[in-house]
Design a protein around this nucleic acid. Sequence first.
DNA 1: GCGACAG
DNA 2: ATCTTGTCGC
Length: 225
Amino acid sequence: MTTFQMPADEAGARAVQDSLRARVVLDEPGPPPGTGRVTGVDVAYDDERDVVVAAAVVLDAATLEVVAESTAVGRVTFPYVPGLLAFREIPTVLAALESLPVGPGLVVCDGYGQAHPRRFGLASHLGVLTGLPVIGVAKNPFTFSYEQPGPRRGDCSPLLDGDEEVGRALRTQDGTKPVFVSVGHRTGLDNACAHTLLLARDFRQPETTRRADALCRRALREATG
DNA sequence: GCGACAG
DNA sequence: ATCTTGTCGC
């Protein structure tokens, strides 16, 4: 397992991404959708006090019921810079994952994996550091382009960086905005979309993300005020 | 040079 | 991300 290194500045952070990118595994299909466990991770910030709280919520993939959850509190040590989100979130997310009483199975995070200017977004970074299968599900297309997918749940279209497919715009509910799925580590794009669709059974966002979001917000309020 | 830009 | 009232819809 690779240890997280906090770079001194933005140039250092890009160098870390360029160096770790070679360790991303893209030729595994990943865990079968609807089986085993799926874990959502998310963070909430208190910018006034430089506090960040991460949450990890483990669900049964078949029932979407909560199996386990954990939180971790940390300090913000890196500014938000588009393309360098991972350096803000990963240390505390790792702490939350490590304190889980069970194995996470597939990890689902907010943000991107391969859909990244240097093909090393949060989901890929987290995957390389933990060795776990990880996917990213984001609410925005970032700088990438896409054609509007069909109107029904399950319809999708390629998320493009030029003519390269870096992810997919996936409609998870009829008549709602799509989410943007990309592979992080040790998972294929088709499977990543299938997982996302099963997790977004009742809402636009995957249940993993909704649970982790609610938990880290609650934990932040309890940690601060 | 300027704007856009996951969370 | 986060700050926030009312409002539309099931």
